[in-house]
Design a protein around this nucleic acid. Sequence first.
DNA 1: GTTTGACATTTCGCACGCGAAACATAGTCT
DNA 2: AGACTATGTTTCGCGTGCGAAATGTCAAAC
Lengths: 146, 146
Amino acid sequence: MSVPPDRRLIFLLNAGQRRVQRWIEGKMAAKGGLTAAQSGVLFFLGDQNGALIGEAADALDLAPSAMTGLIDRMTRAELVERRADPKDGRAMRLYLTDKGRTAREAAKAGLDGINAHLTEGFTDEEIGVVARWLSSLQTKFPKGDS
Amino acid sequence: MSVPPDRRLIFLLNAGQRRVQRWIEGKMAAKGGLTAAQSGVLFFLGDQNGALIGEAADALDLAPSAMTGLIDRMTRAELVERRADPKDGRAMRLYLTDKGRTAREAAKAGLDGINAHLTEGFTDEEIGVVARWLSSLQTKFPKGDS
DNA sequence: GTTTGACATTTCGCACGCGAAACATAGTCT
DNA sequence: AGACTATGTTTCGCGTGCGAAATGTCAAAC
């Protein structure tokens, strides 16, 4: 409330993201200890099993180094497996384990609920505006910044 | 692109927040090494110098334990000072140092630029919708979740 | 006055994410 | 073949944020 108006949007974005993130982790914690970031990997691999680590990082808009740690933790949790690419000695391919596949299914229902919550109380047009605004951030604040 | 539609909004929110955050830190890094979180504290203290740590945490929607670390780093950078409250032996009051005040001024211009960037290409009504949506997250995903 | 409970802050261990630098392998150019 | 560059991944050190448990202090009830 005492936050000056010129920080409003940036503040709301920051706080909102954290709220949703924690809420997801709270929900998921009950259903297997998944975190939001890990669910992202699970969903991506659901479509692209066997993808490179770099491809996953791109798809989730993460730095490769962030993906390394994420995969480490998920490997430890046996949700995912790293296998060397037979063609390219540098590359690592990611595969869902059975446990990962199961977790993915369990998470899907949760995610649907989240999405409903996210759009609740807003018309389709309004959600469209929001989506457009959020997308615009990607181009307005590019990775290799200035 | 390969992200399933039911993850779209949540993904955009997550990625967008990170983009903006990193962009700010890139900008600020040139001008004194401030981070986004630290600027938040600086702005808050600009209005409420001498506030309790808990009050700052509330205002920035952070867990108290997160504020402790943040203040630790800012104290180390001499942006801020902790002084024991004379009336209440438990409480710590936060004060801007001269360096902190200077940094706050330097940051202000940067923040204005960010804000302009954030709203660029959208009408006032559209920004209103976005702000309303972001605000709604606070109530839809409350702290003490379920 | 002591106990009891509320409150402010800190400590701890964890997950997340970044950038820079280090590696290792691949591919290319000569 | 040998040097050079590009690419995929990892390592390192850092900042950020959380929740749970610990600490110290206050305040009210007994």
